[in-house]
């Protein structure tokens, strides 16, 4: 085979021929000419359709006029006024506090698990151990939360156990159908998120870091405070936001465990929709979205959330 007869060596015009030879869909997917760069805009299209547009609609609809069964275009802050002048605003704040409590407890219980798995479990087994925390999600959330009722109730498992071992003589009735019950429910439902994101963040922390700490004489407390928490901060924050958002938004938990009158943002929205007050539902959603976006922004400025994906890349 000589150069003159080789089809591989062609004048530059060959490029045009080459492109024409390939089917259009293949050129599109492999991104070979200008138009095909569209493929890189798919994430943008996705985010527009499923994030920006719904958020915009929520904001717009929240200022629409309420009609009997739906709403009509207009501008009124009536829904916001309704929200802030009723008990709903206070309930919303309480729900935020309970959610924050669930975040703190999840951190105290869940993050040490992540650290332990990263430091003490053999490397090959680490991911399997972490995967175990997915198992609870195999059961319907409704069932999982409902199953807490016979555990936490006045004559439930928890009370009878505490009485059997003699810690208390009278059953405690202040667990179920109280804010405490809601917080317990949230912790048990969302703890795995703290373990996952904590572990992901800990994966970015090299093992040598702990040896250096041993060598320099940093005790457990110093190592945790000065090294582990700062390095895992993006993961801790991401897990915290996840738990906070769900604690605020999943109306199921206060409905089942919180007793009469217990609410959170999710259940307020749900009740508004049941009452056919769509602008109010939108307004509550909008307030929740703004709160969370503000939190995310602050967190990103503080911890640079892109760092959490570093061990993957």
């Amino acid at each position: 085979m000589t150069a003159e007869t080789s089809p591989a060596i062609e004048p530059p015009a060959g490029r045009g021929r080459d492109i024409a030879a390939k089917p259009r869909w293949r050129r599109f997917l492999t991104g070979e000419d200008g138009i095909q760069k569209v493929v890189f805009y798919i994430p943008l299209v996705f985010m527009t359709l499923f994030f920006a547009l719904p958020v915009a609609l929520t904001l717009v609809w929240s200022v629409f006029e309420r009609t009997r069964f739906w709403m009509e275009p207009g501008f009124t802050l009536f829904a916001y006024e309704t929200f802030f002048t009723s008990a709903r605003a206070e309930n919303f704040l309480h729900a935020m506090m309970h959610s924050a409590g669930a975040v703190v407890i999840s951190f105290v219980l869940g993050f040490p698990i992540a650290v332990f798995v990263r430091r003490r479990v053999p490397e090959i087994a680490q991911h399997r151990v972490i995967l175990l925390f997915i198992l609870p999600f195999m059961i319907s959330e409704l069932i999982r939360i409902f199953a807490l009722r016979p555990v936490l109730s006045r004559h439930g498992l928890l009370n009878s156990f505490l009485m059997d071992i003699g810690v208390i003589s009278e059953p405690i009735s202040a667990i179920l159908f109280t804010p405490l019950g809601v917080v317990i429910g949230e912790v048990l439902s969302f703890l795995p998120f703290m373990v996952f994101s904590g572990f992901l963040a800990m994966e970015a922390v090299q093992k040598y870091v702990f040896e250096v700490c041993d060598d320099l004489g940093a005790g457990t407390v110093s190592t945790f405070k000065d090294i582990i928490v700062p390095l895992a901060a993006p993961g801790i924050f991401a897990g915290s936001v996840f738990i906070f958002v769900n604690g605020l938004g999943v109306g199921l938990i206060p409905n089942i465990l919180g007793g009469p009158g217990a609410t959170n943002a999710g259940s307020i929205v749900f009740e508004s929709i049941v009452a056919l007050d769509f602008p109010l539902a939108m307004a509550v959603s909008a307030i929740m979205i703004v709160t969370l976006m503000a939190l995310l922004y602050i967190g990103h400025r503080l911890f640079d959330l892109t760092r959490i994906l570093e061990p993957i890349s």
Partner: peptide
């Protein structure tokens, strides 16, 4: 390690 007069 930190109780020994060594550094690594």
């Amino acid at each position: 390690p930190n109780e020994r007069p060594t550094s690594m």
